[in-house]
Design a binder for these strands. Sequence first.
DNA 1: TGATTGACCAACT
DNA 2: CAGTTGGCCAATC
Length: 116
Amino acid sequence: MKNNTDFLDKVYEIVEQIPYGRVTSYGAIARHLGMAKSARLVGWAMSQSFLSQREIPAHRVVNRHGLLTGKHHFGGSTVMENLLRQEGIAVENDKIINFAKYFWDPSGHLSTNSKH
DNA sequence: TGATTGACCAACT
DNA sequence: CAGTTGGCCAATC
C-alpha cells in the first residue's frame, strides 16, 4: 500500500539527487513530476522535508527567480544563504547570482554534460 | 465537511 | 513594472 505521502517521496528523491553546487526550482521539480501547476505542493513538501529522516538539501531548492523564499524555514535568517555559499554559489540580497548557471534540471540528471 | 493556507508559477490588467 | 487572479494538491482548523 502506498503511503499517504507518495508524492513527497518523489520530491525527496529528486532533491536528494541535486548535485553539489547546483540548485533547482520548485516548478522544475513539479514539472518533472507532471504537476507543473502544483509547484506549491513541492514547496509544501519541502516544508516537511526537514521533518523527514533523510537529509534533504532543501537549501538547493529555490523559486524560479533564484530567490531564497524559504530561508526562514531553516531555523535562521541567513542559514540558507550560508549553505549555498559554502557550495560555491554566490548569494546576494537573498538571491542567487547567475542562477541559470547553477540551475540543475531534474530531467537532465542523466546527462552529466550539458551541451551549450 | 467547508474554508483557509502554503518554501509557487503563469497569465492578465 | 507592479498588482491581481486563476490554478493545482495536500494539510490544518
